[in-house]
């Protein structure tokens, strides 16, 4: 039977389209890439997603949107997922974007258990599983998701000078990257190390979440229109979004600088199971917290220096 299977599969494979067609399409796509912002709908979508998702302040007022473009738009909840090399969720942020672009962000610790499963393992299985778990945990509907590889974030950081502030000098035991105390500008590999370091921090992953938040705030404060264009180009192809999402319509709401508020979902008791360390979730408290935080009522973070 095995020979028959081989023959059958080979016959199926022979049905392929002419490689020259694909080659021609690839060339076409490549040629219009520099103008992707204007012509390529796909590139535009990704670029808009990048601009909309990474930081909602990218598009300045000078880039005038049609009057009333943001009217009638409803608040949307977007799950932002930062993935490590094996598609585990390194960073999970639930964001609610209001019609005026204002965003409220809640970081979800990746070591949270939902139905006995760590949420950071769910995206690799099926993004829908992750969004379902987040909905269950927070009692908030997830309208869309956008995922990016954390190592690509470093490439975005090359395009910017992101200033962060560290409480104390520290060397990441994993990457070997040393960080100075006080304000420091990071990019590239440094930025990735900054965003990924968990070991050697007093509060482990919770400190790392703080780092993600100050990095995003840093990105927000550094963006100009020119940089946003470079960023959108740089980010094209790095971001994966769900297919049903009309990102172009979504991006219309960002017509000027907007406010971002950030907070971290409180966690329950740390538990140790066969898969290592995790936190119990408290659905009732999580829902209450998320409701408040997404309504923009999170406490002021105050000091923006991190461990």
């Amino acid at each position: 039977m095995n020979d028959l299977i081989r023959q059958a599969i080979a016959a199926e494979a022979d049905e392929r389209v002419d490689p020259r067609t694909v080659m021609a399409d690839l060339h076409k796509a490549r040629k219009r890439k520099p103008l992707g912002m204007i012509i390529g709908v796909a590139a535009l979508t990704v670029a808009a997603a990048a601009a909309a998702v990474i930081v909602p302040t990218t598009i300045k007022k000078t880039e005038t949107a049609p009057v009333g473009a943001s009217l009638g738009q409803e608040a949307q909840n977007v799950l932002l997922v930062g993935l490590d090399d094996v598609n585990l969720g390194d960073a999970l942020v639930l964001a609610r974007f209001q019609a005026d672009g204002t965003a409220a962000l809640v970081s979800l610790p990746r070591d949270l258990l939902v139905d006995g499963v760590k949420i950071n393992t769910l995206f690799a299985q099926d993004p829908k599983k992750l969004t379902a778990a987040v909905e269950k945990l927070t009692g908030t509907k997830v309208d869309h998701y956008a995922a990016i590889q954390m190592r690509d974030v470093g490439r975005i950081a090359y395009l910017l000078n992101v200033e962060v502030c560290l409480r104390a000098a520290i060397t990441d035991p994993v990457s070997g990257v040393p960080f100075r105390a006080g304000k420091t500008t990071i990019s590239g590999d440094y930025a990735v190390a900054f965003l990924r370091q968990r070991q050697g921090l007093p509060n482990g992953d919770l400190d790392r979440i703080k780092r993600h938040q100050v990095f995003l705030a840093g990105v927000a404060s550094q963006l100009t229109k020119e940089r946003a264009v470079a960023l959108a180009h740089g980010a094209a192809g790095m971001i994966k979004i769900d297919q049903g999402w009309d990102v172009l319509a979504f991006a219309q709401r960002f017509t000027g600088p907007v406010k971002i508020s950030m907070s971290t979902l409180p966690v329950g008791t740390p538990v140790q199971n066969q898969n290592g360390f995790a936190y119990e979730a408290d659905p009732a408290k999580s829902k209450e917290f998320t409701d408040k935080a997404l309504a923009g009522k999170a406490a002021d973070p105050g000091d923006l220096c991190v461990n």
């Binding site: 199926e12 494979a13 049905e15 392929r16 389209v17 694909v22 080659m23």
Partner: peptide
């Protein structure tokens, strides 16, 4: 590799 990839994907 394009041809082989196309064959594989089609299969």
């Amino acid at each position: 590799r394009l041809d082989r990839l196309l064959r594989y994907a089609t299969a």
